[in-house]
């Protein structure tokens, strides 16, 4: 018997990419450039894809590079935000 497919969200403690819904034109070029295939066009053309498997993101930025309107931002998990400080403040 032919199996029925279902799209089931697989949660994670992180959300690597965010879509600016004002800028997103729902072209899904990001979904087709995503190497781990975590962006699913659940709501159809014209709408941002759903980040269905956020934990599987490998933070390459291909989706951001492909986006024609600059609608996608990528942010690292909190634990991975390396610290930088003013050079002038060293030793003070």
């Amino acid at each position: 018997m032919k199996a029925t497919y279902e799209a089931v969200f697989v949660g994670s403690s992180v959300m690597p990419v965010h879509f600016d819904t004002e800028k997103c034109i729902g072209c899904h070029r990001c979904a087709n450039a995503c190497q781990t295939d975590i962006l699913l066009p659940i709501d159809g053309k014209g709408k941002p894809p759903t980040v269905m498997y956020p934990g599987e993101c490998w933070y390459c930025g291909a989706c951001v590079m492909e986006c024609p309107t600059g609608a996608i931002s990528l942010s690292h998990p909190l634990m991975n935000r390396a610290r930088f400080i003013n050079a002038d403040s060293l030793g003070k």
């Binding site: 994670s12 403690s13 992180v14 690597p16 190497q35 781990t36 975590i38 934990g55 599987e56 993101c57 490998w58 933070y59 390459c60 998990p77 991975n80």
Partner: peptide, 12 residues
Amino acid sequence: DTPGLCEFRPFQ
């Protein structure tokens, strides 16, 4: 939790 980050080479 974050399998995509657990290695250096691409997750896939």
